[in-house]
Design a protein around this nucleic acid. Structure first.
Length: 473
DNA sequence: TAGCCTTTGAAGGGT
DNA sequence: ACCCTTCAAAGGCTA
């Protein structure tokens, strides 16, 4: 994997370890269980630590070989590095191993993650044999699985495109996309073989899969009319809709004025973060379960369930999101999320001002309760960022909470009383908003029992009772 | 038809 | 270092 953010100054430094918040969450929760189950050597924390460690090693190992794009390491060197990684991490077995079938059949070990979701689709796609030549469209073959690439701890294996970047058969880099990018040192592997997939099957793939499997804009070797010249799903016309971007249209744009070029410049979307990936995967399930269609309501439910996920399950999405970010950085080295600023209309000025005067900001909360501005957490939610326990309109901050994590319920299982968002959507039934899982797990095993499936009425009642007790205390 | 709603996370600018 | 803002997806709703 080419190093994207090494000391060379690439954007997103430290990405291999996840975002600060991500780390923060893990550290926080790790502390919770450290006190309670420090003796338990085989807890989720350990798994997570191994996961993170493996991620670091994985990225660092690749970094050492690949170097920073445009910082000395040539494309060939990168390809070699990628090839080495490819060799070490992935092969193309000749037949479908049992593990794949097992993985597709065993829900308990996938929690639905690999089964009919992003990851399974990744697997299905990535295990197609690599194309034998540019523009060639091999016949679809049974998905292949590589046991060696399947981490023992259930960590999602490398994404298909991520793997493809490890392909020893790189093709010329994609044509310039953002138009402001001057060079593109990174070589992108030929993905044209994936176009053997039917449009129908592609259409069923989640966003991640589809944009992982879609080559970037003009990836088809820059050949006009190349069958693989399908735009990256992260690239959408400035209109906002994801449409095909014909190559000749791009050529024509070169002749246009700068202003017109700017207007027609496709929008490269942000890579999805872990929660977005989770939402994308689970939205349909929630809609089916709750017969809801309103996205705002669904997102509330998904937000609760996200917090109810075990760290292991969340880690899968974090890992997937990390891969997305890395891939995005490789595809669009000069892109910045800032590029899309202003393309969505800004919120109303009033809301902006209300936000600025929000007395629930961590700094203000800490000041109010005499907490240490540097080390103390803000309120029960223990977030260093925005204080989510602040109740709009009531002008009150949350009560300071002792360092004892047992007193914490937020945000894992917030209640209607402490959830501002709930106040905004009071019509949502509590059982839909309530996390399927329970308060901060007291043992590693408990967290492993967290499920995405809707809890029974009895479970829901128990959760509510527990939360009531917690509030009373 | 554009924007809002709602969620979490990432990123970058500002302090 | 921390805070704030914006955007990413989704689809119903509203002006």
């Amino acid at each position: 994997m080419p190093q994207l953010d090494s000391g060379g100054g690439g954007a997103g430094g430290g990405d291999d370890l996840g975002a600060p918040d991500e780390l923060l969450a893990f550290q926080d929760e790790g502390e919770e269980q450290d006190d309670k189950s420090r003796d338990s050597a085989a807890g989720p924390e350990r798994d997570l630590a191994e996961l993170k460690s493996s991620l670091v090693n994985e990225s660092e190992g690749a970094a050492g070989d690949a170097g920073v794009p445009g910082a000395g390491a040539g494309a060939r060197g990168e390809a070699e590095a990628l090839g080495r990684e490819h060799t070490s991490q992935r092969l193309f077995p000749d037949k479908l191993p049992e593990s794949l079938e097992d993985g597709l059949k065993a829900p308990e070990c996938t929690s639905g993650m690999y089964k009919d979701t992003v990851y399974s689709a990744f697997n299905l796609l990535m295990h197609y044999p690599p194309p034998s030549g540019a523009g060639q469209h091999p016949q679809p073959q049974p998905p292949l699985h590589n046991k060696a690439s399947q981490p023992s701890h259930g960590v999602p294996q490398l994404s298909p495109l991520y793997d493809h970047f490890s392909s020893p058969h790189p093709t010329p880099a994609p044509a310039d996309i953002s138009q402001k990018q001057v060079h593109r040192p990174l070589q992108t592997p030929d993905l044209s073989g994936f176009y053997s997939l039917t449009s129908g099957s592609m259409g069923q793939l989640p966003h991640t899969v589809s944009w992982f499997t879609h080559p970037p804009l003009m990836l088809g070797s820059g050949v006009p009319g190349h069958p693989a010249a399908i735009p990256h799903p992260a690239i959408v016309p400035s209109s906002g809709k994801q449409e095909l971007q014909p190559y000749d249209r791009s050529l024509k744009a070169q002749a246009d004025s700068k202003a017109e070029k700017e207007a027609k410049k496709p929008t490269i979307k942000k890579p999805l973060n872990a929660f977005m990936l989770y939402m994308k995967e689970m939205r349909a399930k929630v809609i089916a379960e709750c017969t809801l269609k309103e996205s705002a309501a669904i997102n509330q439910i998904l937000g609760r369930r996200w917090h109810a996920l075990s760290r292991e399950e969340q880690a899968k999405y974090y890992e997937l999101a990390r891969k997305e970010r890395q891939l995005h950085m490789q595809l669009y080295p000069g892109w910045s999320a800032r590029d899309n600023y202003g393309k969505k209309k800004r919120r109303s000025r009033e809301k902006h001002q209300e936000s600025n005067s929000d007395p629930g900001s961590p700094k203000k909360c800490r000041a109010r309760f005499g907490l240490n501005q540097q080390t103390d957490w803000c309120g029960p939610c223990r977030r260093k960022k925005k204080c989510i326990r602040y109740l709009p309109g009531e002008g009150r901050c949350p009560s300071p909470v002792p360092s004892d994590d047992s007193a914490l319920g937020c945000p894992r299982s917030p209640t209607p009383q402490d959830s501002p968002s709930y106040l905004l959507l009071p019509h949502l039934p509590t059982e839909l908003l309530a996390s399927p899982a329970e308060p901060a797990p007291t043992s590693p095993g408990l967290s492993a029992t967290l499920s995405l499936s809707p809890q029974s009425d009895q479970q829901s009642t128990q959760v509510q009772q527990q939360e009531s007790q917690r509030q009373a205390s």
